[in-house]
Design a protein around this nucleic acid. Structure first.
Length: 574
RNA sequence: UACCCCAUGGUGUAAUGGUAACACUACAGAUUUUGGUUCUGUCAUUCUAGGUUCGAGUCCUAGUGGGGUAACCA
């Protein structure tokens, strides 16, 4: 039979998609005829906002379906009403679409299948594979085995061998709400001596009176993950059910249930390692703590590894997809260096972000031989990587702002920006020469006095003159608009915040994860910046207009630095 | 502790019993109106011990190290 998969690669040739162990498994399944096509699913529980770790899974399942010409469903695993909310259902869909994936008309909810799952539970009871157990939660837990001696077999519940009719009647009463929460559960009857403790008669249904975001108060009982997940996979005719490694222990149960239920199809669970990234935490619980304790401003704080946080920070869908492509899929535990994410973002933004000039920490330069009121027009390229991006006109005036950092009264030879009695080129403008400085009473330079060379416009170097190596950015004082800039740094100074004791991570937060800079000076075109529109502020990095909850700040222009430019300045050069 | 999973340069990923490779980082150089981009080069790798085999990163056994699970969460 022919396989739709890509050709056999060796290594990672440029431009060719990396192939991983799941490709190989799928190839075999198609070759052996186990499955005729590839149908995957993304199964989030609507109880939080997706983060970059989810992006890995999303890219994998949607990507695999696409590569094999198959389909990928979106299914909300909404089997625990006390934890789940409608707003997350919306947010998750928004984030997946933003990443660029489409489930078309295949949007499902586990709750869509509650009636079938109920019937299947009855089926298990009738066939002698499930029973209603009135033992307390503690008693059940104890009966499954001692924590310190898990090798010993568990103890069978006294309800284990009750007649099916009795269980059936009790199960109906559970559904009807005749029993209070916690009074009883439905358990599978498997093997109380199994070495995998999950197989020691796991709970399949429990009573919950919580209001469900979709089914309201129609149900008093809800299936557990194990009773719902594989069954929904089967009902949706999923072929390859991908999940993270912590579910590997559930696979025998996944198989057992499919084997004992009248399912029409038999999906296959494949586990992969979840994503870890240095300097951050990727777990809903820990991220929630950061939000709830006010360590960050919210789920969409630009420092958060949530997709909405990253979006607000200026990450692009392409950069995230490329990142996920690059890290691959394995069963090996790994921690990816945060710089990989930043590198992918730079790669994308270098191609697509228009260039602008902004001075973060302004120092006044007076060009003495440029009369007040006179303007020198300079043509600035919008994006050197995109020949068709055009140019814009900047006005060079007598007074301009440059970066404090770009001026030194004295400096060594490796410093090739502006110093006293030295020259530097104003980007897109002219070469200026500094011959004097003005200082305040404390000796700080408040003003730099320069002259410009009219022969050096358009990047020209006049005959016989040495080429000026340093080029710095600038903004006309007359034209500048004030903006606020937020520099974003790592959330945790420790590369491995999760190492160590339970809640240590809260003490490893980087106190300087956000630096607010007020009084920055920007070229006037930035007045028109739109949310999500990426810019490179020349020599400073990539920036995006801040838009909390998708809306720009009404009272002022705030830009977040998505990522800095790679900086190879030598340490002693400053 | 029991069960399950994992182990290849600093990092990540390939090599499907047959010459250990690719990318990133680091470092060096070239180009450059961004100390950016781009290009070139250099350094560096199979956890340990046995076994199977003509041949082992790959298969087997044991050890060591790391991780997951041991919820009426998913």
């Amino acid at each position: 039979m022919t396989q739709p998969g890509p050709p056999e690669p060796t290594g990672h040739p440029a431009g060719q998609k990396a192939r991983h162990f799941i490709h190989q498994e799928i190839d075999q399944d198609l070759a052996s005829g186990r499955y005729q096509d590839v149908h995957t699913r993304f199964p989030p529980e609507p109880n939080g906002f997706p983060h970059i770790g989810h992006a890995k899974a999303i890219c994998a399942v949607f990507g695999l379906a696409e590569e094999y010409g198959g389909k990928c469903n979106l299914r909300f695993d909404d089997t625990n009403p006390s934890a789940e909310e409608e707003r997350y259902v919306q947010a998750i869909q928004e984030d997946i679409r933003w990443l660029g994936f489409d489930w078309e008309d295949r949007l499902y909810f586990a709750s869509d299948f509650f009636e079938t799952l109920y019937e299947w539970a009855q089926h298990l009871i009738r066939t002698g594979y499930a029973y209603v157990d009135h033992l307390s939660m503690e008693a059940i837990r104890a009966g499954r085995g001692r924590r310190d001696r898990p090798q010993d077999p568990g103890e069978e519940s006294p309800y284990r061998n009750r007649p099916a009719d009795e269980s059936l009647a009790d199960f109906a009463k559970m559904r009807a709400g005749d029993y209070p929460e916690g009074a009883c559960v439905l358990r599978a009857k498997i093997d109380m001596a199994h070495t995998n403790l999950l197989m020691r008669d796991p709970v399949l249904y429990r009573i919950q009176f919580a209001h469900h975001h979709r089914t309201g108060d129609a149900w008093k009982i809800y299936p557990t993950y194990d009773m719902a997940h594989g069954q929904c996979d089967a009902l949706e005719k999923i072929t390859h059910s991908l999940c993270s490694l912590e579910f590997a222990n559930h696979r025998p149960l996944y198989e057992w249930l499919l084997d004992h239920l009248p399912v029409q199809s038999h999906p296959r669970q494949i586990e992969f390692a979840r994503l870890n990234i240095t300097h951050t935490v990727l777990s809903k619980r820990f991220l929630r703590t950061l939000v709830e304790t006010g360590k960050v401003d919210g789920w969409d704080d630009p420092r958060m590894p949530t997709l909405r946080g990253m979006r607000r920070r200026g990450f692009t869908p392409a950069s995230i997809r490329n990142f996920c492509q690059r890290i691959g899929m394995t069963r090996t535990l790994s921690t990816i260096d945060l710089s990989w994410l930043e590198e992918e973002l730079r790669k994308d933004l270098n191609q697509h972000a228009d260039r602008r000039m902004v001075v973060l920490d302004p120092l006044k330069v007076v060009i003495e031989n440029l009369p007040e009121g006179e303007r020198l027009e300079c043509q600035a390229t919008n994006n050197p990587e995109q020949p068709n991006s055009g140019t814009r006109t900047l006005q060079l005036t007598r007074e301009v702002w440059i970066e404090q950092e770009d001026f030194r009264e004295e400096a060594n030879r490796k410093f090739f920006r502006l110093k006293k009695d030295g020259s530097v080129r104003l980007r897109y403008g002219y070469v200026i020469h500094c011959h004097d400085v003005v200082k305040d009473s404390e000796g700080r330079v408040t003003e730099v006095r320069c002259t410009y060379d009219p022969e050096t416009g358009g990047g020209k170097t006049p005959e016989g003159q040495a080429k000026v190596k340093g080029i710095i950015h600038w903004v006309s004082k007359e034209q500048a608009i004030p903006i606020e800039v937020h520099l974003i740094d790592v959330l945790f100074s420790d590369p491995h915040p999760m190492a160590g004791e339970a809640d240590d991570y809260l003490h490893k937060l980087n106190p300087d994860s956000r630096t607010v800079l007020q009084g920055c000076q920007a070229e006037p075109s930035l007045q028109e910046a739109r949310p999500g529109q990426p810019f490179q502020f020349e020599r400073l990095g990539y920036f995006v207009l801040d838009a909390p909850d998708g809306q720009p700040n009404a009272d002022r222009l705030v830009f977040n630095r998505s990522v800095s430019l790679r900086d190879s300045r030598p340490q002693d050069g400053a």
